[in-house]
């Protein structure tokens, strides 16, 4: 399997993430969509690390993916705290209800 196949999977996963974010009526889905997008990015990093013009055994892309995972963990923790808080404030976790920003 070549680079193209992996990049295609990554692109498709990215697209699914976007669709999840914009089409579902629940904040938790937005989080799920973000996780998918981050995963898609990770696949790209690792795939290019494997197939790109890198030295054998190079680590750059993998290290980047590790940091992305760390970031995702931090993001998930904070985002879920925010979800709980939004629920607490609006009694709902529909993003359409949390529209105070519009004021």
């Amino acid at each position: 399997m070549g680079l193209g196949a992996y990049v295609a999977v990554s692109a498709a996963l990215f697209g699914l993430g976007i669709v999840t974010i914009i089409s579902r009526r629940n904040i938790i889905y937005i989080l799920m969509g973000i996780e998918m997008i981050l995963n898609a990015a990770n696949i790209n990093f690792v795939a290019f690390n494997r197939f790109g013009l890198t030295e054998a055994g190079s680590l750059e892309g993998k290290m980047f993916a590790v940091f992305t995972i760390i970031l995702a963990a931090a993001e998930a923790a904070v985002a879920l705290a925010i979800v709980l808080n939004v629920f607490h404030l609006f009694d709902s976790i529909k993003p359409s209800e949390a529209d105070l920003l519009r004021e």
Binding site: I18, I21, I22, S96, A98, R102
Partner: peptide, 16 residues
């Protein structure tokens, strides 16, 4: 109609 909701997801759609 998505264009007119004025909410987060609308912004996300616009961004995409």
């Amino acid at each position: 109609r998505l264009l007119q909701t004025g909410r987060i997801q609308q912004y996300a759609t616009f961004a995409v």
